[in-house]
């Protein structure tokens, strides 16, 4: 069983974000970065799936500048066997361009499963996984909250609004991972030392011209909150009055 997990390096979402002078992008200078949350879950699921099997290999891929090697190393220290860095000056906002570069790399790689996080924490789009599946002509399951794989077949659960569906699919396939499926392990200290010796291959990403551009990025206006109407149960009548007359939601 050979699994590849596509991971992204994103800023720490607890950061206080600033916008660049031209108003177009988030200013990433001075921010701390890490592997995107859902990608961490995907790495964990991939490791758990292969650990159960006599022969299993987890490969990780990331596209972007040299700094993405940090998250590749992190995945290696969690237990992935090797890493591929698709080098690009920056990650384009156009998810389709990213999907094409990934598909070009993954084509013919002999992977049984190609995994993604359900979306990256910065772009929050979740389009690269399904697009890559389509470009490779593979079955796709988005946002799996459970995943089992046995004898060339996968079973996954997907959360829907007010319910869920259980789907079955043949391998190879593309699966993106939702929260709650597995808690990513802490890179063990031995794992961190071992990661130094694992192969990390760098090659240029094959990126087309992007046809989707970020033209503006804004911080949402602060809510005018902060109005405390009272203390304890005594404040309830006033709250109900405001909900009826001012907010008109009751």
């Amino acid at each position: 069983m050979k699994i590849v997990v596509c991971i992204k390096r994103v800023p720490d979402m607890e950061s206080r974000f600033r916008i660049t002078a031209d108003g177009k992008l988030v200013d990433e200078a001075g921010l701390k970065f890490d592997m995107s949350d859902f990608d961490g879950y995907a790495v964990e699921v991939a490791l758990q799936l292969t650990e159960k099997l006599p022969q299993g290999e987890v490969v990780v891929v990331s596209l972007g500048p040299d700094a993405v090697q940090e998250v590749l190393r992190k995945a290696l220290s969690m237990g992935a066997a090797r890493a591929i860095h698709l080098k690009a000056d920056r990650v384009p906002a156009d998810g389709f361009a990213v999907a094409r570069a990934l598909a070009a790399e993954l084509q013919g790689g002999g992977y049984d499963l190609i995994m993604f996080g359900k979306h990256a924490m910065d772009t929050m789009s979740g389009v690269v996984g399904p697009m890559t599946a389509e470009l490779l002509g593979l079955p796709n399951v988005s946002a799996a909250s459970k995943l089992d794989v046995a004898s060339g077949k996968g079973t996954a659960r997907r959360e829907l609004e007010g319910g869920a569906e259980i789907v079955e699919f043949p391998l190879p396939a593309v699966v993106s991972i939702d929260e709650g499926i597995a808690r990513p392990r802490y890179p063990s200290l031995k794992g961190i030392m071992a990661a130094k010796k694992k192969p990390l291959e760098t090659k240029p990403a094959q990126l087309d011209v992007a046809r989707l551009e970020v033209t503006k990025t804004e911080l949402p206006a602060d809510r005018q909150g902060g109005r405390i109407i009272g203390e304890g149960a005594a404040a309830v009548p006033e709250l109900v009055r405001l909900l009826q007359t001012e907010a008109k939601v009751l």
Binding site: R73, Y186, P187, I192, M193, K196
Partner: peptide, 14 residues
Amino acid sequence: SEEEIAVRDSVRRF
């Protein structure tokens, strides 16, 4: 070093 930082960050998260 990168490893020293990775070790610290992993224990920090734990």
